[in-house]
Computed example of a mutant assay.
Amino acid sequence: MTLATIVALATEEHHGNVQAETFVFGIIAFVVFLLLGFVTLSYRNVANRHAHKAEAYAQAHGAELQAGHHH
C-alpha cells in the first residue's frame, strides 16, 4: 500500500446512521442529569432534619435574632 492509498482510505467518508452513532452521548448526558437531580433532591428538607438545633439556637439567641442581622 502506498501512502496515497492509506490517506485516501483514512479520509473516506462513511455515510452511516449519524443518529445511531451519537445516541450514546445523549444517554450519557441523561444519566449525568439524573445523578445531578438525585444529588439535588438529597438536600431537600435538610433544615427540618435539624429542627431541634434551630429551636435551641433561637431560644438561646432570641433577642439577637429579633434585633437584626449582625456579624
Rank of each mutant, 00 (worst) to 15 (best):
N45K: 12
F25T: 11
S42V: 05
V18A: 12
N48A: 01
H15K: 13
F38C: 13
A51L: 11
F38D: 11
R44T: 03
V18D: 04
R44A: 09
R44Q: 05
N45Y: 03
H14F: 15
L34C: 15
H52A: 12
T22I: 09
A56E: 15
Y43F: 15
I27N: 03
A56G: 12
H15E: 13
F33N: 06
F25W: 13
T11C: 08
A29E: 10
F23V: 06
R49K: 14
G26D: 04
F23L: 09
R49C: 02
F30W: 08
V18N: 03
H14L: 12
F30H: 00
H15N: 09
L36Y: 03
F25C: 06
N48C: 06
A51V: 14
H14P: 03
E55Y: 10
V46D: 04
T40K: 14
H52L: 04
V46Y: 06
T22V: 10
L35F: 15
H50S: 07
V32Y: 06
F38H: 12
E13G: 02
T22S: 04
I27D: 08
T40I: 14
V46E: 10
V46F: 10
V24S: 10
H50M: 06
R49I: 01
L34E: 04
I28E: 14
G37L: 14
V39W: 01
V39L: 14
F38Y: 15
N45W: 05
V24Y: 05
E12G: 03
E55W: 07
Y43D: 03
G16W: 03
N48E: 15
E13R: 11
L36D: 11
V46G: 00
E55Q: 13
E21W: 02
V46W: 13
K53T: 02
L35W: 08
E21T: 05
F30V: 11
I27C: 07
L35R: 08
H14K: 14
E13Y: 09
L34T: 01
E12C: 02
F38S: 11
F25K: 12
N17P: 01
A51P: 00
H52W: 10
A20G: 12
I28W: 06
A51E: 14
L41H: 07
A47I: 05
F30C: 08
V39I: 15
G16Q: 01
E55H: 11
L34V: 12
A54Q: 12
A54F: 13
A54M: 04
